[in-house]
Simulated assay, not measured.
Amino acid sequence: MTLGGAASPVPQEPADRLVAAVLAVPGVAALHPGMFGEVGTYLPGRRIAGIRITDHTVDVHLVVVFGVAVRDTAAAVRATVAALHPGATVNVTVEDVAPAGPP
Rank of each mutant, 00 (worst) to 15 (best):
T2E: 14
T2D: 00
G4T: 10
A6C: 03
A6T: 06
A7F: 06
S8D: 11
P9S: 09
P11K: 13
P11W: 11
Q12F: 04
E13S: 12
E13T: 06
P14W: 05
A15S: 15
A15G: 07
A15P: 07
D16N: 10
R17W: 12
L18Y: 08
L18N: 08
L18M: 12
L18E: 06
A21R: 04
V22D: 14
V22L: 15
L23T: 05
L23Y: 09
A24K: 14
A24S: 15
V25W: 09
V25M: 10
G27Y: 04
G27F: 08
G27Q: 11
A29T: 06
A29S: 15
A30H: 02
L31V: 07
L31S: 07
H32F: 08
P33Q: 14
M35N: 11
M35H: 13
M35R: 15
F36S: 13
F36V: 09
G37S: 08
G37M: 06
V39A: 14
G40S: 11
G40L: 10
G40P: 10
G40H: 14
T41F: 12
T41A: 13
T41D: 12
T41H: 13
Y42H: 15
Y42F: 10
G45L: 06
G45H: 04
R46Y: 03
R46S: 13
R46H: 13
R47N: 05
R47Q: 15
I48K: 02
I48H: 03
A49R: 03
A49F: 00
A49G: 02
G50C: 04
G50D: 00
I51H: 09
R52V: 07
T54W: 10
T54R: 10
D55R: 12
D55K: 11
D55V: 09
D55I: 00
H56K: 13
H56F: 04
V58G: 05
V58A: 07
V58S: 05
D59F: 04
D59T: 09
D59Q: 12
D59C: 03
V60D: 04
L62T: 00
V63H: 01
V64D: 01
V64K: 00
V64C: 02
V64R: 01
V65W: 02
V65L: 05
V65T: 15
F66E: 12
F66T: 00
G67W: 01
G67C: 07
V68H: 14
A69P: 03
A69E: 13
A69T: 05
A69G: 08
R71Y: 01
R71Q: 02
D72W: 09
D72E: 15
T73V: 14
T73S: 03
A74C: 09
A74I: 03
A74P: 03
A75R: 13
A75T: 06
V77G: 02
R78L: 02
R78V: 00
T80R: 10
A82R: 15
A82I: 07
A82Q: 13
A82E: 12
A83S: 15
H85W: 12
H85Q: 08
H85D: 02
P86C: 02
P86D: 07
P86F: 02
G87P: 10
G87W: 05
A88R: 12
T89F: 03
V90W: 06
T93N: 12
T93C: 08
T93F: 11
T93G: 08
V94W: 03
V94N: 07
E95K: 11
E95L: 10
V97N: 01
A98E: 10
P99F: 01
A100N: 09
A100M: 11
G101E: 10
G101W: 04
G101M: 02
G101A: 09
G101Y: 02
P103I: 03
